[in-house]
C-alpha cells in the first residue's frame, strides 16, 4: 500500500525534563527511536504524556536535556481539528488541499477508516468515535515519518482500532515511526513502553530494537 521509504532517521531524547505551569512534570526521560520503531507512553492522568508528545512535536521546549530530531512530525492531539459547521467531506477535502496531499491518499484514508457512508453528514451530527476516525484519516494525508498520537483510540470501536493497527503497521514497515500516548492497549506490535510514573519523576524505556 505505502511505497515510500523514509531515509534512515532517528529520534533521541536525552535526560529531558519538562515543566508545566511552574511545576516539573517529569525529568530524566531517555528515549531512542529508530526507523520502524514504535513507543507507547503510559502513565496516570496529568503525568505529562501529552507534554512529552508536544516535546516531540517541537511545540514545547524542555527545561533540561536535549532532543535530537531528524524527522518530520505529524501531531494528532486530543482535539480532532474538525470544523463543526461543515460536512465530513468538506473537512477531509480541506485538509487534503491544505496538507498538499493527493486525492489517492484521501481515498486511502476514507477506505481505511470506512468513512464513505459518513461523508455527507455534518460533523456536528457525528459521534465521538466517528469524529476520531475522521481525524485519524488525516494520517494518510501527511508525508511526515513520525506520527505523534495522543489517545488515538479514544471512542474507537473494534473495527476502527483494527484499521488503525493496520495503518500503523504499514507506516512502520515503510520506515516510519509512531509515538502514542494511550490508556487502552493499542494494536502496536513490538512497541517499546515508556512508563511515566505517578510521582512524575521516574521514567524508563524498555529495550528497543529497530524493526528494519
Amino acid at each position: 500500500m505505502r511505497v515510500q521509504l523514509f531515509s534512515s532517521s532517528e529520534i533521541e531524547l536525552r535526560e529531558v525534563a519538562c515543566a508545566r505551569g511552574g511545576r516539573e512534570v517529569f525529568r530524566s526521560v531517555h528515549v531512542r527511536l529508530c526507523p520502524g520503531g514504535a513507543l507507547v507512553v503510559r502513565g496516570s492522568n496529568g503525568c505529562g504524556k501529552t507534554s512529552l508528545l508536544r516535546l516531540f512535536a517541537g511545540m514545547l521546549k524542555p527545561v533540561r536535556g536535549e532532543i535530537r530530531l531528524d524527522a518530520t512530525a505529524c501531531y494528532l492531539g486530543h482535539e480532532n481539528a474538525l470544523s463543526r459547521q461543515s460536512s465530513a467531506r468538506a473537512n477531509l477535502e480541506f485538509w487534503t488541499k491544505f496538507l498538499d496531499a493527493s486525492r489517492e491518499s484521501l481515498e486511502e484514508g476514507i477506505e481505511c477508516f470506512h468513512l464513505r457512508s459518513l461523508l455527507s453528514a455534518p460533523v456536528s451530527s457525528l459521534s465521538l468515535g466517528q469524529c476520531r476516525r475522521l481525524a485519524l484519516a488525516r494520517l494518510c494525508l501527511t508525508p511526515a515519518n513520525l506520527w505523534l498520537l495522543d489517545e488515538p483510540a479514544s471512542g474507537l470501536d473494534a473495527q476502527a482500532l483494527e484499521s488503525l493497527g493496520a495503518l500503523m503497521a504499514s507506516h512502520r514497515e515503510s520506515g516510519g515511526m509512531v509515538v502514542a500516548a494511550s490508556h487502552v492497549p493499542l494494536p502496536l506490535k513490538d512497541a517499546a513502553t515508556l512508563q511515566l510514573d505517578e510521582s512524575g519523576y521516574h521514567c524508563r524505556q524498555d529495550e528497543l530494537e529497530p524493526l528494519i
Partner: peptide, 8 residues
C-alpha cells in the same frame, strides 16, 4: 478550539 490551528 478545535485544534486546527495547531495542525496548521
Amino acid at each position: 478550539e478545535t485544534g486546527a490551528l495547531e495542525v496548521m
